[in-house]
Design a protein around this nucleic acid. Structure first.
Length: 388
DNA sequence: TGTGTTTGACCCTCT
DNA sequence: GAGAGGGTCAAACAC
């Protein structure tokens, strides 16, 4: 209790004054300190009484992306646009709506790396946060905390995990994580980043679950798709449930990012994919229709939700994960997917409607994240694969 | 100023 | 028919 209050205090202060990055960084430290020693009393009284932490928004610390911070921030995922890897997974998943959302596991470290790489931290973080955790396996959770980073990293490669094997990967990839740190993270995976734009329209504490559930709508005008996301306190995704199907192509990231080349890369891939994808898509579509519908969601939830149950079994898969798309066992709906295809499809499909999303998307896209993300992801995958 | 998030309240569905 | 819970709406707020 005390700790919370202390936390509040700390958090609140920054809010009132507009926390700067420096504050943010210190936050973790402060927090730790507060928890350890700080007597909440003094701060609490003043701060708590007067200040209410309504909406405390953490900004991703651009520079530092200490894992702890990331974890909390990562949550933002809702709006984040996905990167290639996620997409790739999705593509495979597409057949079933459920799969799309796959919360991909991205290691925080990767996120941090990304952050370091660029200003994108927030975006990536969202992705990274995507880590899917299995509710059913509290142990894993604990483990995850201790080893959060590891899991996430793997997630990138292990999108396949999303299918439900994620945790196993984490074990396998722990080592990878450290390495991954050094590597340009594949931020690819974002929980929310399924290639679509999402808007959060509600949040609720569900009784059954220990984590709050967030409700997201696809921002596309006529798109009925919604998703529910349960995140752990760490910001990791405990469960994602998609509802409905997108009646529109995925928003395309600006083809040419500032760094043009990247965009080109994507485009090229996309083009190539298109032909293939289109074909695939047609087939996928069919499958989706079969699988995807709402009911499917419910059924598939288990799949989608990464319930950790299955994970262990798939260790090998996890290993495969890097390329998981392909190797991974498909869901009943046929989630197989090649990263490439998926990523391609995603990119290809994107139509970006919208002017609105401008900020989030632009930020995400501009950097050419998609392009780089894909490449990076691939690179990582390769490295991970070889290691595995 | 515009967009997105937060959050309390309301409505609907299920048991 | 009542209660509980989940899902959605919409105002307020933050960025």
């Amino acid at each position: 209790m005390e700790t919370k209050e202390t936390d509040r205090v700390v958090i609140v202060k920054p809010v009132a004054s507009r926390p700067t990055s420096s504050n943010f960084q210190s936050f973790s430290e402060l927090l730790a300190g507060a928890i350890n020693s700080s007597p909440p009393s003094a701060c609490n009284e003043s701060a708590v009484a007067t200040i209410r932490p309504k909406t405390v928004r953490f900004k991703p610390a651009p520079n530092r992306a200490p894992t702890a911070v990331n974890s909390s921030q990562a949550e933002v995922s809702g709006t984040a646009t996905g990167n290639s890897t996620d997409k790739a997974i999705k593509s495979d998943e597409k057949p079933t709506v459920i799969y799309k959302p796959l919360a991909k596991l991205v290691s925080r470290s990767t996120v941090s790396l990304l952050a370091n790489m660029g200003s994108f931290n927030a975006h990536y973080q969202t992705l990274s946060v995507a880590e899917a955790r299995v509710k059913s396996q509290p142990q894993d959770k604990h483990n995850s905390r201790s080893q959060p980073i590891v899991n996430l990293h793997q997630s990138v490669s292990s999108q396949a995990d999303v299918d439900g094997t994620g945790e196993p990967l984490r074990l396998a990839s722990q080592n990878m994580e450290e390495e991954a740190r050094t590597l340009p993270a594949l931020n690819v995976d974002r929980p929310s980043y399924d290639g679509y734009n999402w808007r959060k329209y509600g949040q609720k504490q569900v009784k059954g679950s220990e984590y709050p559930r967030s409700y997201y709508k696809c921002t596309h005008p006529n798109c009925p798709v919604k998703k529910k996301v349960e995140r752990s306190f760490d910001g990791q995704i405990a469960e994602i449930v998609y509802k409905g199907e997108h009646n529109h192509p995925k928003p395309q990231p600006p083809k040419r990012s500032s760094s043009g080349a990247q965009g080109l890369g994507n485009v090229l891939e996309g083009s190539g994919l298109d032909s293939t994808n289109n074909l695939n898509n047609s087939s996928h579509l069919i499958e989706r229709e079969e699988c995807s519908e709402d009911r499917v969601e419910n059924k598939n939830l288990a799949l989608m939700t990464y319930h950790g149950k299955g994970p262990l079994a798939h260790d090998p898969i996890a290993n495969m994960a890097p390329n998981a798309g392909r190797g991974t066992p498909d869901n009943s709906c046929g989630i197989s997917g090649d990263h490439d295809d998926g990523s391609k499809e995603l990119e290809m499909e994107d139509d970006e409607p919208k002017n609105k999303r401008r900020k989030s998307e632009n930020q995400l896209n501009e950097p050419g994240i998609s392009g780089e993300g894909i490449q990076e992801a691939r690179a990582l995958q390769n490295s991970t694969d070889s290691r595995l």
